[in-house]
Design a protein around this nucleic acid. Structure first.
Lengths: 114, 114
DNA sequence: CTATTGTTTAACCATTTAGTTAAATATAGA
DNA sequence: TCTATATTTAACTAAATGGTTAAACAATAG
């Protein structure tokens, strides 16, 4: 167990910082799936996939429903929404920047001779 | 240097998976700042802050303008926008889920006796 | 030239991450 | 019960992360 509690956003962004885990999220967005179905998509061992799933669970992005020997995973939207919210705060910032850039580009095009 | 090139999204999400770096992003959203100004907000050494900045630069989220001995940092919007885009793909997914949840809650409230 | 300021780089260390293989656990089927 | 299936856990390893202090570098000031 971790000595100190991590910020939930730390965990969500960390979970997303890995292509394998992003692919898992992608697949789970289509609907619930058992571990083995997810593992089929990857070349690594089942144990490795199992660990990736655990990371997503710890970040509260995925939940598990055990039915017999199969563990069905599903996406939990809340934490992802929080991550989106965090980034969204900077939307205005970059929209302004991009508009400014677009304006510069357009001005230059207008002033071109051919 | 890294042996293999990392997926840019890996780097952006990894950069965001640290509270210190998120605070740096927050401050830079207000405008350009020299390294020392940023470092003032944190209890860690300047060298540590310098490393965090390097992580943000490697992720192409921050750019540097050297003027004399001061290095001014600014936010670069594109990569953050890409991260937002990635998460946004799942917006419909969770909106649907949340609506469903809201509907259930409302139904239960309607059926309550007091 | 020398000292001071702003910043990075180097060397080091503890912890975490991402993978491995092998063993353990739990359920289902013959 | 014995065996196969679904999955986790343990033990290990290599590499990355996040911090430290000390040294190096660059630019300005006296």
């Amino acid at each position: 167990m971790p000595a100190v509690k991590k910020d939930p956003l730390d965990q969500v962004f960390m979970a997303l910082a890995d292509g394998t885990r992003r692919q898992i999220v992608k697949r789970l967005a289509q609907g619930e799936l058992p571990v083995s179905d997810i593992a089929k998509d990857f070349e690594m061992s089942l144990a490795a996939v199992s660990k990736h799933i655990k990371v997503l669970e710890n970040a509260k992005m995925v939940s598990r429903r055990v039915e017999g020997r199969q563990h069905f995973l599903s996406l939990v939207p809340e934490q992802l929404a929080d991550a989106l919210d965090w980034i969204s705060i900077y939307r205005n910032f970059w929209l302004k920047r991009m508009d400014a850039l677009a304006a510069i580009v357009e001005t230059n095009i207008e002033n071109q001779e051919d």
